[in-house]
Amino acid sequence: MLDPAGPAAREIATLWWIMLGGSFAILVFVTILLALSFRPDRRQHDDVRMERTWIVGLGLGFSVAVLAALLSYGVATGARLTAPSETPVQVTAKATLAGWTFGYDARDDTEDVLHIPARRDVEVAITTGDIIHSFWVPRLAGKIDAIPGHVNRLRIEADTPGVYQGRSAEYSGPGYLDLRFTVQAHDADGWQEFLRGETE
């Protein structure tokens, strides 16, 4: 996740670094306020003024401002990551306790390896053959669950051709650890070869 290899994962990683910085600043601020409460000499304030400073100012004002900014950034990012693109490559993913099966429009299914073209938007339609699983390729995007009777869609994109590790991320009983798959991102030629069935 900290080593993103696609636009979705990169946006989320940026979000993380911003939130980490902000959180650290707030933590330091609160710690300083706590430490200052122990200082020996201090002026006496009346309750009404203190309530205004601490509760209305810090408790309400400060927290609402920070949260509103963060929330709008988060919602905008989320909307971007789920916004429909013009012509995504469509693939399907079906999880079972035995492993993952991936399907394509133009050729046979593959087992435990998802082939995608690099630098193109890919929409994965995810479902399950038995219980709840989750589709997660940390370096490419966030995760989404595979739920009986429902189809969930996730968009992924890889910047460069290569192999990316994927895994199920919803506990599924014995064998959970080994419910893993890989994503093989091809360059344009390699993708056409794959679709023609020349690579497995």
Partner: peptide, 28 residues
Amino acid sequence: VAFFSAASTLVAVPTAVQLFAWIGTMWK
């Protein structure tokens, strides 16, 4: 999801009110 995200961040506000009320009490 965005609605519940907003609700989830909003819940931090009354928590912050209490937190700062406690620190304010210590200052007092």
